[in-house]
Amino acid sequence: MRRAIIGAGIAVGVGVGMMALGAGNAAAETFSPDYSQVANGQGYDRSQLLTPGFSPIQVPEVAVENLPGATTVVAHPFIAPWVHEVVPVPAGTAVELRGAARVQIPNAGGGVGQSLVINPNGHCVFAGPGAEPTALDATALDATALAPVRVATPYFDLVIEPTLYR
């Protein structure tokens, strides 16, 4: 019994510590997805992808930006069409997910004191039978923004913003 209480106390302490670390980072900047990214890899030439067609994640060419203090790699991966086809979504319904992650690795950017930042952004729409994903509009009356998922720590950030359409 005593071990269980100590274990629970340690777990709560670690959780509070992670929240405290993340709170400082979140207060300084609200990390968000790239809202200009189109859904489901639309507009990318499939022959120019870095990953083969059988890969569940498709990755187009990435952008690398070298700035003082950080080398940043930005990618806009998307889920392969064949994966979209196997995700069960009820008829007349669609789920839109926008998300981004950011991993910061200090002193790994190639220069002295330079950080490496890896920033993949994604935007997917999963549509059930009878739903027209190209007609989705977040301002529509049938759109429900669901609670976003946010993780913010000094070296890792994640945000996923789901919207349900009926």
Rank of each mutant, 00 (worst) to 15 (best):
R2A: 13
R2W: 13
A8W: 07
A11Q: 02
V12A: 15
V12D: 10
V14F: 04
V14Y: 00
M19C: 12
A26C: 01
E29R: 14
S32G: 14
S32P: 07
S32R: 13
D34K: 01
V38W: 11
Q42V: 15
Q48G: 01
L49N: 01
F54S: 14
S55H: 08
P56D: 10
Q58D: 00
V59C: 07
V64S: 10
E65L: 12
L67V: 12
G69W: 11
G69Y: 01
T71G: 02
V73A: 03
H76L: 01
F78A: 08
F78D: 02
I79D: 10
V83G: 02
V86N: 09
P90L: 11
A91E: 15
A91R: 09
V95T: 01
E96I: 08
N107L: 03
V112Q: 12
Q114N: 00
N119S: 12
N119W: 14
C124R: 15
F126Q: 03
A131W: 13
L136W: 01
L136N: 09
L136Q: 04
D137K: 04
T139R: 14
T139V: 08
A140S: 15
D142I: 04
A143I: 09
A143M: 03
L146R: 05
P148I: 07
R150M: 07
R150G: 08
V151F: 03
V151E: 02
D157R: 15
E161Y: 04
T163F: 07
T163M: 12
T163R: 06
L164P: 04
Y165V: 10
